[in-house]
Each structure stands twice: as C-alpha cells, then as structure tokens.
Design a protein around this nucleic acid. Structure first.
Lengths: 168, 168
DNA sequence: TTAAACTTTCAAAACTTTTTGAAAGTTTAA
DNA sequence: TTAAACTTTCAAAAAGTTTTGAAAGTTTAA
C-alpha cells in the first residue's frame, strides 16, 4: 500500500472508531491527521485535506483543545495559528480516560448515590429488585472510578510492562 | 424520593449514559427497565411503560438479546413471550466488554496490522511520523485486547477484591 | 384446515447531530 | 487610526439515526 493511501485509511478508520465511541467523526479525523503530521498544520491545511468547512474546522479544533489532545502553536513572524497533536499514545489514552471519567462517570455516580438513598419495604419485590440493581451498579461504577484514578496517577511503564500478567 | 420517581430517574439516566457510549437510548432504557423489574415483562408492558412503538420494542429487544443482556422466557400455557435481564452486574459488564471488543477493537487491530506493514524511507519525516503513530497505537490496542482477554477469562472476585490496590 | 394471538419487517416520518458558509469579531502592523 | 489577515459565531441546511405503525408473517389450538 502507498503511504498516501495508508494515511487516508488511517484517518478514515480513526474517524469510524471515534463515532462508535461517542466522539464525532470529524473530530477523530482531525486528530488522526495531526497525529500523522510531522509538522503543525494551519486551519486552512486541515480544511483542505479533509474537505471540511472553516466553521467545522474551527469548532473541531477548539473541542480537541478542550479534550487536551492538541495544542496551538505560533510561528514567529506569522499571524496564522498552527495546530499539533501530542504524539505520545499513553498521554492520549490517559487524557481521553480522564475526560470521559469527568464528563460521564462522575455524573452517573452522583445520580446513583441519590437513588441508593431511596428507602422502602425490603419485602416488596419492586423495591428490593430496584435497590439491589442500583446499589450493585453504584458499587461497580465506584470501583471503576477508583481503578481509573489509580491508573491515571500511576506511571506509564506499568501499562507497557507486565502488571496485567499478574492475573493471568 | 418516591420509588416510582426513582425508577423513572434510573431509566432516564441509564438511557443517557447509553447514548453517550454509542448504545442507543431506547435500548439502554429497555435494559434499565428489565434490570429493575422483579418479574419478566411482555413486549406489551415494555411498550406501555416506556411509550414506545411495537416495532421499536421488538427491534430493541432483539438487539439486547444479541448483546447477551436479556433473555426470552416462556410461561407454560401462555402464547406471549416474556423478557428478563440478567441482574448480575459483573456479567453485564463482562458481556458488554466482550461484545465491544469483538465489534470494535478487533476490526481496528486488523486495520492497524495492515497499516503497520506499509514500508517507506526512514528518513522521510512523513513516513516516520506515520509509522511511529500507527505502530504505537497498534501496540496500545493489542495491550488493551490482551488485558481484556485476561480480565474476561478471570474470575469475578479479583475485580471486587483488591487486585487494583497492587499499583496504588 | 382456520382464525386468533402474537411477532417481525420496513418504508416513511420524526428527531438528533453535524456541517456549512457568510457575516461579525479580533488582532496586528504600519 | 485603518485595513488586511486571520478567527469565531450561529442560523439554516444536510446528513445521519431512531421511531413509528400498518401490513405481512408465524405459530398454535381447536
């Protein structure tokens, strides 16, 4: 396969994966493009390469900055803004996990805590089934939360190294 | 909060979480409803409770069965089909992880393997940046895959217990 | 068989999300 | 100041996804 085809395929696949994970396609594609660019790119170049509008490019770049996945760069003597992606895969994974934890897991735990407090007659199957499911899910969510916290705080090498071999 | 309100809130929150994670809202809501129902429900009851159409209920129930999250049950002497959800939170998590691994991770690894094979001039920054990102992501994806495989094959209690305390 | 009871399908409609692009806003250099 | 170079906004349009509901299909009991 030619390099140019391979790049196109990478951008396309990354976009598809993104949309399956609740990240919009364009955002994932712009990220992919910057990941494989040796040099920072301008809005203009991104619009051109991916055939997207100025408005879309601008919004997407802002979102990616919000996710902590890309940064702006200024070249001395130039007015234009350049964008580049952090290329460290471990940082990317950490950043995404951190954001999703904050945006999705935390609000869910808040609701579950509230629902866990609902009281009722332990002999009423309606209540006891509800209560068991809610408290179980709450425990799971909190366990996931703690686990993420630990992993995010830990240093990189445990992941690439063999920690997971421990429970083979 | 009243039990009935709490149930409604649970269904609504579960639906919202689902849609953030690429699972459609109705599917997550039907699942939530069955999770907190002490007894199996008919299509009719589900349609009624969630105010959804017959077609929608039918498709959604089929999808949930495909995900391995609910099952059909037949009551002796009755024509109707009843549906119930596995209430074991660990099973649910395992099932979802297993399906997403199959549906999303595996195809991505396939593409990455293909893209890793692309050859080029190591002195060309275009090539070497592409190659580094692709091979790094491929390594990450494979590491996640292996980790999931291990976790899915392992027994439940390591999760609730303290395995993760190991790398605090 | 038949017909009642139930389930499935699918094209069209409703809804949601994303994208566009022109206009407004901002910054900079002279 | 001014105007050129650039960025941001946002309402409307397009694209994508989900839902509806009526019609077709299936199963069962008699």
């Amino acid at each position: 396969m030619e390099l140019e085809d391979a790049k196109r395929k990478f951008i396309e696949s990354w976009g598809k994966l993104g949309s399956e994970w609740g990240i919009n396609r364009t955002m994932a594609q712009v990220h992919a493009l910057l990941l494989i660019s040796p040099d920072p790119l301008t809005t203009e170049e991104i619009m051109e390469t991916l055939s997207i509008s100025r408005g879309n490019a601008n919004m997407t770049l802002r979102d990616l900055i919000g996710w902590g996945l890309i940064e702006k760069q200024h070249k001395p003597g130039e007015r234009k803004e350049y964008f580049f992606a952090d290329k460290d895969v471990w940082n990317i994974a950490k950043q995404v996990a951190k954001e999703r934890r904050k945006r999705e897991l935390e609000p869910v735990i808040k609701v579950l805590d509230e629902l866990s407090k609902v009281t009722g007659d332990a002999n009423d199957p309606e209540f006891s089934t509800f209560n068991k499911s809610v408290t179980d899910i709450n425990k799971l969510a909190k366990n996931v939360d703690k686990t993420l916290e630990t992993m995010l705080g830990a240093e990189e090498n445990w992941f690439w190294g063999g920690i997971f071999k421990l429970f083979k």
